[in-house]
Each structure stands twice: as C-alpha cells, then as structure tokens.
Design a protein around this nucleic acid. Structure first.
Lengths: 131, 131
DNA sequence: GTGATTGTTATATAAACAATATAACAAATA
DNA sequence: TATTTGTTATATTGTTTATATAACAATCAC
C-alpha cells in the first residue's frame, strides 16, 4: 500500500489515512469500483489498530467518497454517484476559508495562492491548463 | 469585539479566536500597529477562560502575525515585518493540499475551487481583479 | 511612587478525543 | 463449512481542550 503514517505528526492517524486514500484516488491510483483493503488488512499493513482504519473509512463514507457494504467491504464511488452537491461545495468553501485567510494575512497574493492550488493539482499529475 | 464563539463547533475555541482575529486583520478592521485586547479582557468578553485566549495569541505569534510584548500587550505586525518567508509559503501550501485534494475527489474542477478562493477574498471585501 | 493591569508560570481538575487491545457477533464469501 | 468481513461492546492509556485559582514580576496610568 502507498500509505505512509507519521506517528509524530499533529495530524491524527485516522486523518492521515483518510487524506492519503483521497490522494490515491485523485492520482488515479485507485479508481471508482475498486475495493479498499479490509480494515484489518490495512491496519496490519500500517501497524495501527483496526478501529483507527475503521474510523477513517467511515469518515470517507461520510464525505461521500466510498460506500461501505456491511460485512463485505468498502468500494470507491464513481464520480457520477458522488456528483458534487451544494452542501459539498459549501463544505469545501468552509475548509478553504481559514487557509486562504491565513495566506492573505501573511501577505500572500491571490495569484500566489492560485499558483499553489494549481501546483497541488499538477503534483497529483492531473493535467491542468496553463501549467 | 467582533468575535463570535460557537461552543458546539468541532473547531476548538482557541482556534476559532485565532481565525476570527485573522479575519479581522484581513478585513482591515484591525491594522498593523494596533493592540489586541488583553487576554483577560477578551476572555471576559467572550465568556471563556484566560488561558484559552492566551493560547490563541501564542498561535498567532507563532504564525508571525502578532508580537507579544511580555507584561505589556500584543501588537499586530506590519506586512513588512511579516514578509512572506519560504517556510510560510510552504506552510500555506501544506494547509491547502488536503482541502484541494478533497475538492478534486468530490469532483470539483480547478475553476470551481479557484472561484471559491476568490469568493473568500471578495467576501472579505478586498478588491480582486475580475470579480 | 502607588496601585492596577499585564503576560507568565504553576498546579489541579474535568471532559473530550485519539489510539490501542480484546472479544464476540452475524452476514458475506470462498 | 470455515474464513473473512464490518459491527458492536468494553476497557485502558495518553493527549488535547478548557476551566479554575493563584502567585509573580514587569509595565502602565495616575
């Protein structure tokens, strides 16, 4: 598995797992319909507890990114299934706000933040116009 | 004071204080050289503990946004004093990444995220070209 | 100079959160 | 049928968040 846990990080382990799975999906390493490893298997791979991975999976389900079939497994939803709802857009904006505000206060320009945003895209090897 | 605390929020109180002070600075309601209220006064205003506000002030100092003069007060640093360091730029990018990745996975386009970013700017009544 | 205010430091407590450890259950799968 | 799966439950440990008091020394207003 591509997930690397940093135990010293201020980001909780379950959150690290959630983010790195999202990155894997964004990179195209994991595609809609693909099954995630069982919570026990992934936990064993990462050397963490089963419940920690389970919490991550449920976080992903709440975000609308995967579907957990009880007693079976977790499947990555297709982009159609997870068509961006107004609530999700609002959530993204809510997440974006404090980051942008901090950037502004520190003196970053719109262009600089825009550039960083596109850099995140390109780092994930997703082609973006003008980069 | 313009700060509104939501006790039920999943965002810690000290973090809410930090963010809303940054918003106040971004809006221009508070300018470089201005003094922040004493930790005791602000805590009394908000109905929270002194240490909670103190933690927020130290977070702002660590971010390079204010200067705390021991036994005197906290002052908002000028934009010149806090000229964007490479470390700060890197920090902003680090903060930006998970938000952008989640947006991507949920199916948001670069343009949509860009639009939200500029909306945050305009909501803070900072003039931005092309908005 | 006196007294109030300031950030600092220390200690203590309570609640919530994060993470682990075991264990048992019932549905799904091979 | 036996294994694997997510689910649920209980318990423990450590960290974080938040509050409550208190005392200290530097600063500030009068």
């Amino acid at each position: 598995m591509f997930i690397q846990i940093e135990p010293q990080s201020d980001v909780p382990i379950y959150e690290q797992v959630t983010r790195q799975i999202m990155e894997g999906i964004a990179r195209g390493e994991m595609k809609p319909g693909d099954t995630l490893p069982s919570v026990r298997n992934l936990a064993a791979d990462l050397g963490v507890n089963m419940h920690t991975v389970n919490k991550s999976y449920h976080e992903l389900e709440e975000k609308g990114i995967i579907t957990i079939r009880a007693k079976s497994g977790a499947i990555i939803r297709s982009t159609e299934e997870r068509s961006l709802t107004p609530e999700q857009l609002q959530q993204i904006e809510k997440n974006l706000k404090p980051v942008v505000v901090e950037g502004m206060v520190l003196g970053a320009t719109v262009e600089q933040i825009e550039h960083m945003m596109k850099k995140v895209f390109s780092d994930l090897q997703i082609p973006v116009e003008g980069v």
